[in-house]
Amino acid sequence: MTAYDVMPDIELYQPATVEDATELAARLKGSAWLLAGGQDTYGWLKDRAKTVEAMIDLKGIDALKGIRETPGGVEIGALTTLTEIVRHPLIGERYPLLREAAAVVASPQIRNMGTLGGNLCQDTRCWYYRRGLSCYRAGGNTCYADSPAGMNREHALFGASRCVAVSPSDTAIALSALEATMIATSRRGSREIPADDFFVGPDVDIVNMTALAADEVLASVRLPDRWANAEFHFEKVADRNVWDFALVSIAAALRMRDGHIENARFACGGVACVPYRLPAVERAVVGKPRSESTGEQAAHLASRGAKPLNHNQFKVPLMENLVRRALRG
């Protein structure tokens, strides 16, 4: 049994440039853990549910921090803290959807330390996995949550493939609705990954929640002009109003013209391993006003194809109600 009284030995690297960080990530591939604000990381280490040989601390890399305007929109460095995002005027003016999402993450202390990159790359909160059981996501051959006695109230309605865990990130659904692009960098170069491809479900990769390769660092997130100053709705339902993960959440971006919805993007949290887009709802609301009756018409489309587990049927009406509320304006 692992000892809890002393911290295991961890080799700590503190690069000051992106080049050094990617060089280290390539060299230590597999044995190193990228560290940002540590708010997800330290939980794993304290519980001894995961151990690491080496850590690459990204906090000293200034190039990965800050929010700047670009010709196509706004770019946010992956090491920018959630508090900075909440307070930044550009985000507040153009993308209040992201501000609202970042503002409801955990608690003020965690938002002060936690970064956007860490929030997007954090691991699922399924407690069987967090407790260190050897389930699929931990490299094993079974799922404890999706079993007759499994406690799966917080788990997925959609896209489960053996693992039924959900994405815990509040900012992920906002970025999916805003059609953001993630910039991944490694020694091999940089690549742009659309938000919808950045998050991966268990059908594709049962042990990783993002498309990042082992030697890649998330450098920044780009928000396109396309959705700047659109109409937005963000809502998160959790057991507690603060310091708690979403049971179900919704992020909606609606581009209006002459009182009618011209274009819309909806993403739900807490219902799948990835931000769960609602394409049927998006199609159905085009050309309609933002109203109670549009919400009524579209709500049932949201939960089509849901496969509830033993204890999470309540998420179906909850999700539909969040769509109604997003559309009534």
Partner: peptide, 16 residues
């Protein structure tokens, strides 16, 4: 063979 030590310190056989 791949093994994993689970949270109770048991060795769990995972596969090849």
């Amino acid at each position: 063979v791949r093994y994993r030590e689970d949270v109770w310190g048991r060795e769990v056989l995972l596969g090849v």
